[in-house]
Design a protein around this nucleic acid. Structure first.
Length: 556
RNA sequence: AACCCCGUGGUGUAACGGUAGCACAAGUGGUUUUGGUCCAUUCAGUUCAGGUUCGAAUCCUGGCGGGGUUGCCA
């Protein structure tokens, strides 16, 4: 269970606090997270999960997990399992309050019958096309369906026959009898049951009529004895109907729905349709591609549950349609990983360095601290030898002003190692640097000079003789613009072509031996996580997020 | 055009009707065996116009701006 985080102040917290103080619902708080199992959870869901589970915990209640499976055409067990896994991974648990909306179909049916008995629902035989006309529109009131004048007995009979399967799909619907002139179109006799002969992934063909969300949801909440029902802003206009259903059935202590703004993030997309399109058209590898904003994608990218919870807390809960900067999410994972990730030496785009005055064949072991922020993480030994690799970016033949790293005749420190000075550059026919000749100062073992002289730069390195070669996947933002596809359909044209670069990486031995999922920092490069696909022969690391680099920023 | 919701630094978010604060981003300086971290510091805000009030980001009216709603999806 996610520990201790007291939710940041927000209007929902205040409201619930007030309800508890007034002993509404006897002072109990029961919430629910009700995903439809038709896709994978994303970071936007994480925000809702943190709210739903967080509020329940704050007030000593339970948050239910409910699969809102009222539309058999779209749902599947695969998604149920993935959703459960992601919520647990985030650090939340629903105890024994796991439900399927479809387990309530019988009660919902009874409620619909009761509505008919009370004259508050009727069977409508209008076709969808006809209804378009009857419904009116935003500016024009609707007119009454002929079904409205049926007797209660006729409606009871028709609905019973709908259930028995006497009518074809779409031939009839059950409507709530509310107000055809309401300015809120959802109150113009909304459909509450439709006929749909599709096999339900759990109910099979037991039912051919299925309740609509607007009817089912308040009943699900009420039947589970939920007190506070949080959802996103687009359901705001449905709330009168939510309340109407429970009031029409004279439900005691009905739950109350409260809406908050869904999460929007820069440089990515959150809509299920667009995410699905990215997967289907192979712009990404799958739902768990590390570039995806899905929870499984972020997990694979190396994001921690803690960082996602912290992010949810920082974005807050409001009714304002905000767009949160991706930089905040990146900050949250850096904040966590900086404290907890061990540091290792790894070299991307390696260039060989030969230390001319170091004995051939000699290997010595140097002490390296695993995490300067966390002394209890201990230390390890790093092998050092005459031939090393350093990152190509750590050498410049003609260094510009302000460049602190290796250059001809310049001395730098090898982290945990020695001071070395570059004495020669070897190039191939194209002028590409293939090897650097250096000398080292034996007096500077461990990285400090007895004579007190300083160097400006410290670079990372690995010994060639013991280096393990693997692959580093450098993931970047999925889109090049803060708000992809605002013009809509064109969002794919704004995909970042550099969102994934695979480069060979030379690693110190201890790094290659880490178990999958371990999060580390490659010094001076970024935070990485070992990919689940990694093998002993080829360790694969995904870059979670780059280190801040003031030098790179300066250059721009 | 109808109804509903929402407007606080570049971004996100706080503030019983009583000193507009925090974080991210950006800039500067310092510490540092990671150009990381850390520390210090700067920049920058209540959409507008009226009204109520001793006092308004907060309450009222209107304007402006943004979002939502016309599925037998959720």
């Amino acid at each position: 269970m996610a520990e201790n985080t007291t939710p940041a102040s927000n209007f929902i917290l205040d409201m619930v606090k007030e309800d508890v103080r007034n002993l509404k619902y006897g002072g109990h708080v029961e919430t629910r997270f009700p995903p439809e199992p038709n896709g994978y959870l994303h970071i936007g869901h994480a925000k809702a999960i943190c709210l739903d589970f967080g509020i329940a915990r704050e007030f000593g209640g339970v948050c239910h997990l409910r699969m809102d499976d009222t539309n058999p055409a779209k749902e599947d067990q695969e998604y149920v399992d993935a959703i459960k896994e992601d919520i647990h991974w985030l650090g939340y648990d629903w105890g024994d309050h796991f439900y399927y909306a479809s387990d309530f179909f019988e009660q919902m049916y009874e409620c619909a019958v009761e509505l008919i008995r009370r004259g508050k629902a009727y069977v409508c035989s209008l076709t969808p096309e006809e209804w378009e006309e009857y419904r009116g529109n935003l500016y024009v009131a609707g007119k009454e369906s002929p079904g409205r004048s049926l007797s209660i007995e006729e409606n009871l009979d028709l609905f019973e026959r709908m259930k028995r399967g006497e009518f074809g799909d779409g031939e009839k619907v059950l409507r709530a009898r509310i107000d055809m002139a309401s300015p809120n179109i959802h109150m113009r006799d909304p459909v509450i049951y439709r006929i749909r002969r599709v096999e339900h992934f759990r109910q099979g063909d037991r039912w051919c009529i299925y309740p609509m969300y607007d009817f089912a949801h308040p009943l699900e909440d009420a039947l589970e004895k939920v007190t506070h029902s949080f959802c996103t802003l687009e359901f705001e206009i449905h709330r009168p109907l939510y309340d109407w259903v429970l009031q029409a059935l004279e439900w005691q202590d009905p739950p109350e729905q409260t809406e908050f703004a869904r999460l929007s993030l820069t440089y990515t997309v959150m809509s299920k349709r667009k995410l699905l399109q990215l997967v289907k058209e192979k712009h990404v590898n799958d739902w768990d591609d590390p570039r995806m904003p899905t929870i499984c994608g972020l997990r694979r990218r190396g994001y921690t549950p803690e960082s996602l919870r912290r992010f949810s807390e920082m974005v807050g809960i409001t009714k304002f349609n905000a767009v949160t900067d991706m930089a905040l999410l990146e900050y949250c994972v850096r904040e966590d990983l900086n404290k907890n990730a061990s540091r290792y030496l790894a070299v991307l785009d390696p260039v060989k360095v030969v230390i001319e005055n170091y004995p051939e064949g000699k290997i010595e072991y140097l002490d390296a601290v695993n995490n300067p922020e966390l002394p209890e993480a201990g230390s390890r030994e790093v092998p050092f030898g005459r031939e090393l690799y350093i990152d190509r970016a750590d050498f410049m033949e003609e260094p510009p002003k302000g460049y602190f790293r290796l250059a001809p005749e310049r001395e730098v420190r090898l982290r945990y190692g020695y001071f070395i000075k570059c004495t020669g550059v070897v190039k191939d026919a194209d002028g590409q640097v293939t090897e650097l000749r250096c000398t080292y100062d034996p007096e500077t073992r461990g990285g400090s000079a007895p004579d007190g002289r300083k160097v400006k730069g410290t670079i990372h390195w690995v010994a060639a003789a013991t280096a393990k070669c693997g692959e580093a996947r450098l993931y970047d933002r999925l889109f090049t613009v803060p708000a992809p596809g605002t013009g809509d359909e064109d969002f794919l044209t704004q995909l970042n072509p550099d969102s994934l670069k695979k480069v060979p990486v030379m690693m110190e031995p201890a790094l290659a031996a880490l178990p999958a999922g371990t999060r580390v920092q490659f010094e001076r490069v970024g935070y990485f996580v070992m990919d689940p696909d990694a093998t002993a022969e080829c360790p694969v690391f995904n870059r979670t997020v780059a280190l801040k680099d003031s030098w790179a920023r300066q250059q721009k």
